[in-house]
């Protein structure tokens, strides 16, 4: 593949069917939002994976700092009572 030059990176979110939320699927290179949507369509939905696409410039994503892992995530680990795991989920409920 040749150098893709000035194309910027976009994050792709796909809604797999109505009622579900958009989920991160991956990223594409594109020069503008229309091109990003088309690239996402051709890259991530050609096997019928989606009914809706969001694209977001990767530069607009604010990410947590791995160095802050301890203070961000460690405290949740010993609070198992926050997990709604103490009742059975009926079989009919998908996508919980």
């Amino acid at each position: 593949m040749a150098d893709i030059g000035d194309l910027s990176l976009w994050e792709v979110f796909i809604r797999t069917k109505g009622g579900l939320s958009h989920r991160h699927a991956g990223s594409v290179h594109a020069a503008d939002k229309r091109m990003a949507l088309e690239a996402a369509r051709d890259t991530y939905t050609r096997r019928m994976e989606g009914v809706s696409i969001w694209v977001v410039p990767s530069s607009q994503v604010s990410a947590s700092d791995p160095d802050e892992y301890d203070s961000f995530f460690e405290p949740a680990k010993d609070k198992i009572y926050r997990h709604p795991t103490f009742y059975p989920v009926p079989d009919e409920i998908k996508n919980m």
Binding site: M1, I4, E38, A39, D42, T43, R46
Partner: peptide, 13 residues
């Protein structure tokens, strides 16, 4: 052979 993976998939599609 396309200029990028994205275009490669687009043209094949």
């Amino acid at each position: 052979h396309a200029p990028s993976t994205e275009i490669d998939l687009t043209l094949s599609n």
